[in-house]
Amino acid sequence: MRQIHVSEIKEAIVDLILSASYDIPPEIEKAVVQGIDAEISDAGRSVLQQIAESYQIARAERIAICQDTGMAVFFIEIGQDVHITGGDFETAVNDAVRQAYREGYLRKSVVAEPMFHRVNTGDNTPAVIHLRIVPGEQIRILVTPKGFGSENMSRIKMFPPAAGVEGLKRFVVDTVREAGPNPCPPVIVGVGVGGTFEQAAEVAKRMTARPVGSHNADPRYAALEDELLFEINRTGIGPAGIGGAITALAVNVDFRPTHIAGMPVAVNMCCHCARHAETTI
């Protein structure tokens, strides 16, 4: 049994949020820079240049990559041989969010109640926490701050099994097409297939943080990712939606076992600012 004090967890998460908010993941920056050469439209190229320059400024000056520093979404795996001491775990996560968003000059974008009285909580809490208990005595933490320009363009649909690959493809490409300029293209598209209603959505969210350029280990899904990327980049939407060949940087798909009667498909749209950072304690 390994003891981990909540203060250690809190410190690690503060660092993680700051790094995610200021430092664009290198593989995204690389894809944007490569996109400048590959782009067919002058306007699209200019947009990608501005984005690449903005990434550099954010990193050098330690300012937010995007003003929408998002809701703080966590995927956390806790080893079952860990004993957390000194306080409760969720409070530690939220304390870290509060501290990082205040000290890091990040925007507070959370309202306490969504419909009647939308009052800002003032500290960007509460965080959204997805938790798993795994073997071992470590804690693995992935944070992926999520902006809502792209979140609002996400969709989920409960397909019948007969919809098959073609049904999924049409749904994903249509979702990107209808979103058009709104989610700040070039986008990263996270797709979750199977599971239940909420599991498909969670997988899709997890996929927005899978590195650009990586592929699903299952060759059928890897091929599907390439086909979807090709189709999306033929829509002409382009960077910032004003026309071009680079509409998406990646389409990341993963699946879960599902019911004999269903094929849920969730599409979580993410902007090029697909911020994420990971650490192991």
């Binding site: 947009v47 501005q50 984005i51 320059e53 903005s54 990434y55 400024i57 954010a58 000056e61 300012i63 937010a64 990559i65 995007c66 003003q67 320009g149 300029p181 700040c184 960077p239 910032a240 004003i242 902007c271 090029h272 600012c273």
Partner: peptide, 9 residues
Amino acid sequence: GAVGGAAAL
């Protein structure tokens, strides 16, 4: 239009 996500620039 300004470029979404080029906020630091």
